[in-house]
Design a protein around this nucleic acid. Structure first.
Lengths: 83, 83
DNA sequence: TTCGTATATGGTGCTTAGATCATATTATCA
DNA sequence: TGATAATATGATCTAAGCACCATATACGAA
């Protein structure tokens, strides 16, 4: 799955989905990533203001990756998941 | 160009390249994005700890987009730019 | 080299993220 | 339904981002 991320809410969705897909609890992800469970909860719920480093920690722990590209004006390929 | 972003330095590179590609100065990008020139300078140089919202502002102003996907273990396609 | 611009650096002050602990709320399941 | 696990909420405190102003430095052109 590919998540287009423009807002903190988008990011929260992506994180939560990836975590669930791996059958991890927030607490488990917390110990894997070094990010507190309470913080993960807030991030998954899209409460903005998160620090980049925290996101990187979660992304890495969840085996995800972030890419930055030019905005695709081309035809949508249906692979994207935007909330 | 596609930038794989795992660190603040990666992000800085992506931002700077995109800005240069559009022939914008930091000051111009600042007024377009609402992020101060001084802050842009720091971000482009990879000084970590940046807030997500700030990144979103810059990404939007530069017509870039962020996507989150599963880590590609497949064959590299040569399109990525990792620093 | 000198002028003008672009970028970096540095300080102040307000605001807030996140670590940490405690607890409330919400699933989940035998 | 009651126990147990998962998630959310809330408070405190410290570290740090960023707006903001001033200035230093690097860079390009003439």
């Amino acid at each position: 799955m590919k998540h287009l991320v423009r807002t903190s809410k988008n990011l929260g969705h992506a994180i939560r989905q990836a975590r669930k897909a791996k059958n991890l609890t927030q607490k488990e992800l917390a110990s894997m990533s070094g990010v507190w469970q309470e913080t993960i909860s807030k991030i998954e719920n899209g409460s903005g203001g998160t620090k980049l480093e925290t996101v990187f920690d979660l992304i890495a722990a969840l085996d995800l990756e972030i890419t930055v590209t030019e905005r695709s004006k081309g035809a949508p390929d249906g692979l994207e998941d935007i909330f």
